[in-house]
């Protein structure tokens, strides 16, 4: 049964990489059920991330957000800050797609704080870039400028010319 769970997960990932997002979700849901059966929180967390990602490409941003929230909740339980940061970043981007810029900014800020705690300059740069865009969309150019400047500073520091 445990091997079956891993096989479902691998099949889900393979379909995902082939661009078969509906099939991917079918397999990842099977993977999720087996992870729950075993109380395997790490596998459950991975399944939620994979399900969130697949729903982005199915255009179901609302469903993706719910899966990413489950990922976020479990990453905190598992005390995995890198995954927590990634979940916040995914939620920020998903709420941007949902045109809910206030909530997008909330998650990008949470991502920024964790990236700073982890001394992840690339993550911090991405968070600032996203926050600049969110504040432009909210009609707050002064705050957008603050984050754009920070984004420029970090990009120069890490040598990201793009």
């Amino acid at each position: 049964r445990a091997a079956q769970g891993r096989a479902y997960g691998n099949l889900g990932n393979t379909h995902y990489l082939l661009g078969n997002f509906t099939e991917a979700t079918t397999f990842h849901k099977e993977r999720l059920a087996i992870a729950k059966e075993f109380g395997d929180k790490a596998a459950e967390r991975r399944a939620y991330s994979n399900l969130g990602n697949a729903h982005i490409f199915l255009g179901r941003f609302d469903v993706a957000a719910e899966y990413y929230k489950k990922t976020l909740q479990l990453s905190r339980q598992l005390r995995d800050q890198a995954v927590e940061a990634q979940a916040c970043y995914s939620l920020g981007n998903t709420y941007t797609l949902l045109q809910d810029y206030e909530r997008a900014a909330e998650y990008h800020l949470r991502h920024l704080v964790i990236a700073q705690e982890l001394a992840d300059r690339v993550g911090e740069g991405r968070a600032c870039w996203s926050l600049g865009n969110a504040y432009v969309s909210m009609g707050s150019p002064a705050q957008a400028l603050t984050f754009a400047k920070k984004h420029l500073q970090i990009s120069q520091e890490i040598g990201d010319r793009n």
């Binding site: 691998n10 990932n13 990602n53 982005i56 199915l58 941007t96 797609l97 045109q99 991405r126």
Partner: peptide
């Protein structure tokens, strides 16, 4: 589902490009 109406947001576009190849492996 909802349409990808915000593809002009560079940071989101970049994230989605990375996401296409992002799988949580077993």
């Amino acid at each position: 589902g909802q349409r990808l109406h915000l593809m002009q947001v560079d940071s989101v576009q970049r994230w989605m490009e990375d996401l296409k190849l992002m799988t949580e492996c077993e």
